[in-house]
Amino acid sequence: MIDITDVYKTYEGSPAVSNLSLHMKGGEVFGLLGTNGAGKTTLLRMIAGIIKADSGSITIDGLPVYDNPVVKEKFFFIPDELYFLPHSRGRDMARHYAGIYPDFSTEEFNTMMERFGLDPARRINSFSKGMKKQLAVVLGLSSHTRYLLCDETFDGLDPVMRQATKSLIAVAMEERSLTTVMTSHNLRELEDVCDHVGLLHKGGVLLSKDIEDLKIGVQKLQVVYADEDDSYNAEERMSILDHKRQGRLHVYVARQTPDELDEIFDDIDTVLYEILPLTLEEIFISETEVVGYDIQKIING
């Protein structure tokens, strides 16, 4: 697990990360969401032991990360701006990492390279941006580390490659309990792969929740009352996060389980009563609007 406790980091006097605490469980995909300057990359680089927090602690499996090769053997970091050894080929990078990570699998590397259609003998500086990202992911997965840290890794991939990558990560999670921490400024990107999402804003954590918990706890409900006066009765008993009305159609987002909602509307006569699935974006908007932040701007940039 990765524990981040009261971490504070400034750049030239301005806080980049401010008293941030997060707990990332092993074996799950943790998504860090936020706009540019929210502190995602800074946080990830601190987790990767590249930069040191001004205060607070970051530990992986109970051990501090910074300048700790024992801990660093446990993760592979894929930064947003990739770097490869000068004039190297894919196989040169594989050889380089094989010397660093004791569990690096050259066989698996070659297999994945073939699957992605990448030539290990070709010079990396002739790769496109997307191909370089693919190569980075292949190298990361081939290292067989327990943690994979990805900084906006999916942003350069086409949908097919993105899906293929997600599949590989899923397989690795299943086979060896790989824990993945990934950052993005695109919520839709994280939605179908993350187990836990943290929303960062101006160096702090705005929200950090399991996606399932989010989905279970919040429901979207469409109702048309037979008698419009019954709406007051129902609304009193619901914990409403959002309420929109179009004529007689009421659309509620309520913090209730389906069973609880069934119980409320059991004795109310309705023309239409339907519980709809919520997207992660809708959940986030609802949750953060309560706090007072305009999540649209945060999510969509």
Binding site: G49, V71, P79
Partner: peptide, 10 residues
């Protein structure tokens, strides 16, 4: 990018 590459390694 080169700092990230080298300093994240064990």
């Amino acid at each position: 990018r080169s700092v990230d590459f080298y300093d994240s390694q064990p």
